[in-house]
C-alpha cells in the first residue's frame, strides 16, 4: 500500500502543483463535490473500490453543497475559485488519474459505471495527465 505522503506527492506531480498542500486541497474539493452530487448509496459503493489512502481521505471529507442537477464541476469551480470551468475539470482529472494508477481495470470499470456521465468523460480522459505522457507512450 502506498503511504499517504507518497500518494499526495504523486497527486502533486500529476496536477503539476507548485505546493504540496495543493494536492490535498484538490482531493478534498473533488471528494466534497462528489459527495454533494452522488446519492449516498453510490458514494458508499465507490468507496468500496478505493484503496488506502484515498479511502481515508474520502471518508474524512465533509460533503459539499447538495446538488440535484448533478453538475459538480460547476460547484467545484465556484467552491475552489477556479478561473474557468476547464480548470475545475482538470482538478477532477488529476484526482481520477491518481486513483486509476492505484486500482486494477475491474475497479476502474466499477468506479466509472457509478459516475454521472459528465464525470465519466473526465474519468476516461484522465487516463494519463502526466506531463511527459505515460509509460504506454514508449510501447
Amino acid at each position: 500500500m502506498i503511504s499517504k505522503e507518497a500518494y499526495l506527492r504523486r497527486v502533486t506531480v500529476l496536477g503539476q502543483y507548485c505546493y504540496p498542500e495543493r494536492a490535498e486541497e484538490t482531493l478534498r474539493l473533488v471528494f466534497s463535490c462528489l459527495k454533494g452530487v452522488l446519492p449516498v448509496e453510490t458514494g458508499r459503493r465507490i468507496l468500496e473500490f478505493l484503496p488506502e489512502p484515498v479511502r481515508s481521505i474520502w471518508d474524512d471529507t465533509i460533503p459539499g453543497k447538495q446538488l440535484t442537477d448533478g453538475d459538480c464541476v460547476t460547484l467545484a469551480k465556484e467552491t475552489g475559485g477556479y478561473p474557468y470551468r476547464a480548470a475545475a475539470e482538470k482538478a477532477f482529472e488529476v484526482v481520477f488519474a491518481s486513483i486509476r494508477e492505484l486500482v486494477d481495470d475491474v475497479k476502474v470499470r466499477g468506479i466509472m459505471d457509478l459516475l454521472p456521465s459528465p464525470l465519466e468523460i473526465l474519468f476516461v480522459r484522465s487516463k494519463s495527465c502526466a506531463l511527459d505522457g505515460s509509460a504506454e507512450d514508449f510501447l
Binding site: P83, Y84, R85, A86, A87, E89, K90
Partner: peptide
C-alpha cells in the same frame, strides 16, 4: 489551449 470558453 486550457479549454476555457469564449465567455471565460
Amino acid at each position: 489551449g486550457k479549454g476555457a470558453s469564449e465567455e471565460e
